[in-house]
Design a protein around this nucleic acid. Structure first.
Length: 636
RNA sequence: GGCGCAUUCGUCUAGUGGCCCAGGACACCGCCCUCUCAAGGCGGAGAUCGCGGGUUCGAAUCCCGCAUGCGCUACCA
């Protein structure tokens, strides 16, 4: 058993360096892999620092936690040391099944391999605290024997009452030591009868306890403020305090890395190490990661576990780099570094001691950088996987890999997350080319002249049809530029019209290249469909003013508004509303005709409240004219 | 309440007594490029180094006090 192995630091051995060390470094890690060679060899000649990541199985590790793991791993790798994974499952009640798997998955995603751990074993196995109970009991027996610890029979109710009294009296809360003076033999006898009890560590009453934190220097606590804390719970499991001290010593851990919330209990650990006759490890308390509001990072702030980031489409390389430099800097200027560069420059000693706010925008930027740096084929395969998952079911599977490959150069500088890909290029994969709604299709440029848009679209079809045999981006571009000139349209306007027609969106990858990737017939069909849509805006006549309030003959009629404000940068009459084409237009709009305008308008205005100028009641400027072309407001 | 830790542009950071009237990055703004959006290039704005004392010829850097934030104050970790 692990307890019988002598601590590694007592062995006299040669340092492992160079290629040998590097080779060893690559071993271990995944649970699926065989136990690492490094672990097998550890007993023989490894002396580098030994560090551990010791999470408790209470769910997915969050970024703060995993960043400490990352730093710990980096230090081990930088100094040719050993990285150990240990599961701290001493609180049975809080255990969440499957946590070990999630923890391992998180580490593996970041490619943080561990030399010793629960599944791959190692010279100090087992690496699960619930399997090491005998060790803690053994240590406790020693403590009991030397009177450094004692049994406490106080019930939870007793303790609560005690705390209540202390609160009321304004005293510092803490165990008052009422069982401290029980005779050990009597206490032992009571324990034998099965009387429930815990075991407490006897802290010195006066004096101070000082320890050194690698990042902050000496920290001193007054002993009288520290109470006799529990080391063995009534279920015979150890508390964190005892388990950590026993295990970190038994596993020959040289650097204890953990969150800064542990600073206040470190004097207890120090006293425990001493009482057990163990040398002190180096304590490194890492700062916390804050949310954008300066508070603790939480679900409200978006992803907080690394696995969440993976799901959102961040690259592991990005998180690795980002987490490494949040709170650590190699030189104050370099922020983009390879794994190897980070390993080469890293040292726990250089960590910041202050908390940092998680800057998602910077993370996104960095992910974009890594994404653009990825070899095309690699990005293509990542995007293909992503599309398989994210594209709506209508998109036929399997997703066209060749098409994805063709899209990569067009999209790589337009996405920051893998998850950005589907909304950007979904139109390429849908069986039916999507059409925008009429207002979007016409846009600002053609709103007032849908006929021109329809004509342009028709001309585009004709101009492109002959190219179908030699369908390429330069050809398409040349044809459309020529067309724009011929029609005396601004090229940008024409291109946007085509973009909307072909993709259904105003924001897309470059038009000509995208069209070239798509089937020519499909593009022509889209353009033709768009032409019809534009034409319908021209063709539908308005039947004029309604004869009576009850007349609900359908028509396309644009209404203009005045009297609103422009506080939101929008003049009151700039937002023409067409029935059926503007999702914000209220259902009652078709009924406007012939209805007393002023009262009706107030009602409509109220219904549009969230999106419409509200400071003053709007009024309909004029009744619907006998005939109005789309896009023209009534005041025209 | 007590104890502890932290405190440089909005954010991440460089800085360990003179090279700093504070450097880099993200974000922001402007210009260029441009078929949209990006990406890219160039430029700009942005920090009295939390505040107040002190030490020193000289302080972001050392000391003291205060303030603020966070943490701990469990038979949780």
């Amino acid at each position: 058993m692990a307890a019988r192995l002598p601590p590694a630091r007592h062995r006299r051995v040669a340092r492992v360096r160079g290629a040998g060390a590097r080779r060893l470094r690559r071993c271990g890690g995944g649970a699926a892999r065989a136990p690492s060679r490094r672990a097998a060899l550890a007993g023989a000649f490894v002396t580098g620092p030994r560090l551990r990541y010791a999470p408790s199985p209470t769910g997915d590790p969050h970024v703060g936690n995993i960043r400490t793991a990352l730093w710990t791993w980096l230090h081990a790798r930088r100094h040719g040391g050993t990285f150990v994974l240990r599961l701290e499952d001493t609180d049975q009640g809080r255990e969440i099944p499957g946590s070990l798997e999630r923890i391992e998955a998180s580490l593996r995603w970041l490619d943080l391999d561990w030399d010793e751990g629960p599944r791959n074993g190692g010279p100090y196995a087992p690496y699960v605290q619930s399997q090491r109970l005998a060790l803690y009991h053994e240590a406790t027996d020693r403590l009991l024997a030397s009177d450094a610890a004692y049994r406490c029979f106080c019930s939870a109710a007793d303790l609560e009452a005690m705390r209540e009294r202390q609160r009321a009296a304004g005293e510092p809360p803490g165990y008052d030591g009422r069982c401290a003076s029980l005779l050990p033999d009597e206490a032992a006898a009571r324990a034998v009868t099965g009387e429930p009890h815990v075991i407490r560590f006897r802290m010195p009453r006066d004096g101070t306890t000082t320890f050194t934190d690698l990042l902050r220097g000496e920290i001193t606590y007054e002993n009288r403020l520290l109470d006799d804390f529990v080391i063995i719970k009534s279920d015979r499991f150890p508390t964190y305090h005892l388990a950590h001290v026993v295990d970190d010593h038994a596993m020959a851990i040289t650097h204890v890395t953990r969150g800064e919330e542990w600073i206040p209990s470190t004097p207890r650990h120090v006293r425990l190490f001493e009482a057990l006759g163990y040398p002190l490890p180096i304590f490194v308390h890492t700062p916390v990661i804050l949310g954008p509001d300066g508070g603790k990072l939480s679900k409200r702030h978006g992803a907080r576990s690394v696995l969440d980031f993976a799901a959102e489409g961040y690259l592991p390389e990005t998180l690795f780099n980002f987490l490494a430099i949040m709170g650590w800097s190699p030189d104050g200027a370099t922020e983009l570094l390879t794994r190897d560069a980070i390993i080469a420059a890293f040292d726990l000693q250089d960590l910041a001691a202050h908390p940092s706010v998680f800057d998602t925008q910077k993370l996104e930027w960095m992910n974009g950088v890594y994404m653009r740096a990825l070899p095309e084929a690699e990005l293509a395969s990542l995007l293909l996987d992503r599309l398989e998952r994210d594209l709506p079911p209508e998109a036929p599977r399997p997703i066209d890999a060749a098409l994805v490959a063709g899209l990569v150069p067009l999209v790589r500088e337009r996405i920051k997350l893998l998850a950005d890909i589907a909304p950007l290029v979904d139109f390429c994969f849908l069986p039916e080319p999507p059409l925008p709604d009429q207002a979007a299709l016409l846009g600002k440029a053609y709103r007032a002249r849908p006929a021109a848009a329809a004509d342009a679209l028709a001309a585009a079809v004709e101009a492109l049809r002959p190219l179908a045999a030699a369908w390429s981006a330069p050809e398409i571009e040349a044809a459309l530029r020529t067309l724009a000139t011929a029609l005396a349209e601004k090229p940008g306007d024409l291109f946007m019209l085509c973009r909307l027609a072909v993709t259904g969106k105003a924001v897309t990858p470059p038009l000509f290249e995208t069209m070239a990737l798509l089937d020519a017939a499909r593009c022509l069909a889209s353009l033709a469909a768009a032409e019809a849509l534009a034409r319908s805006a021209v063709a539908t006549p308005c039947r004029g003013p309604r004869a009576s309030p009850g007349d609900r003959t359908p028509c396309v009629c644009y209404v203009g508004w005045t009297g609103g404000d422009s506080s939101k940068g929008r003049t009151a009459d700039s937002g023409s509303v067409s029935r059926g084409s503007n999702p914000r237009s209220p259902a009652s709009l078709p009924n406007l005709h012939g209805v007393p305008v002023s009262s009706r308008m107030v009602k409509v205005s109220a219904q549009l409240a969230p999106t419409w100028p509200q400071s003053s009641p709007a009024t309909l400027v004029a009744p619907c004219p006998g005939r109005t072309s789309a896009g023209r407001s009534l005041r025209d």
